[in-house]
Simulated scan of single mutants.
Amino acid sequence: MDKTVPELAEELDINKLRIYRYIKKNNIKPVRTDKNVQYFDDKSSNAILSHFRDVAGNRVSQDTESDTKSDTTETALIELKDNIISRQDREIKQLYKQVESLQRTIDQQNKQFDQQQQLELESIRTFKKNIMIDSEYHPDTESDTHDTSNDTKSDTVDTRGGIKKSGLFAWLKRSNK
């Protein structure tokens, strides 16, 4: 029974263009042509079928071999990807620890800065308070803005010389005794 190219392609489960190329390449002549449909006798049909079955058989073994190579390559790529991911995870954890450490340092420095500001403010308050106390206990003392060019030498002599100093430092010195 004569077969057409579409029938052969369906039987082999391949594209009919492959069969047409094989026929043209090997100069296989159809037994008859009816309305642009080529019919091949049993001898030609069997030659075409056996060729593509052999090729398919070889391809199956080659496909299995290439699948094995492909699986090996794919496994290697997966391992490489996993290694890269684990390395990046380690780097991320290390960077996270560094960020935490830097944040603790910043927090500690902010706390120290706040303490310094509070101490400075308390120092200024104490200084102002002492100035007020000094001016209350020594109303005869002049303010710090008076002209010192007319001051006598006795103002610069310390308390060991018998002359008492006036002012904030003198008061602090007397209060410490």
Rank of each mutant, 00 (worst) to 15 (best):
D2Y: 10
K3E: 09
E7N: 03
L8P: 08
A9S: 07
E10M: 05
E11K: 04
L12P: 02
I14T: 02
I14M: 09
L17W: 03
R18I: 00
I19Q: 03
R21E: 02
K24V: 05
K25C: 03
I28S: 02
K29L: 07
N36V: 02
V37F: 03
Q38E: 08
K43A: 06
N46D: 08
A47E: 00
L49K: 15
H51T: 03
F52V: 04
R53Y: 04
G57P: 00
N58H: 06
N58M: 06
Q62G: 10
D63L: 14
D63A: 12
T64G: 04
E65W: 04
D67K: 15
D67L: 14
K69Q: 15
T75I: 11
A76Y: 08
I78H: 07
K81W: 06
D82L: 14
N83M: 13
I84G: 07
S86F: 03
Q88A: 11
D89L: 15
D89C: 06
R90H: 06
K97M: 11
V99F: 13
V99G: 05
E100Q: 14
E100W: 13
S101H: 15
L102V: 01
L102M: 14
Q103R: 12
Q103T: 10
Q108N: 13
Q108L: 15
N110L: 13
D114R: 14
Q115N: 15
E120I: 10
L121C: 15
L121D: 10
S123F: 08
R125C: 01
T126Q: 13
K128S: 12
K129P: 00
N130Q: 13
E136S: 10
H138S: 15
H138A: 12
P139R: 02
D140T: 05
D140C: 02
T141G: 00
E142L: 07
E142A: 15
S143H: 00
D144S: 12
S149A: 12
N150S: 06
D151T: 02
S154K: 09
T156G: 10
V157L: 15
D158L: 09
R160I: 04
L168V: 09
F169T: 04
L172G: 08
L172A: 10
S175G: 01
S175Q: 10
S175R: 05
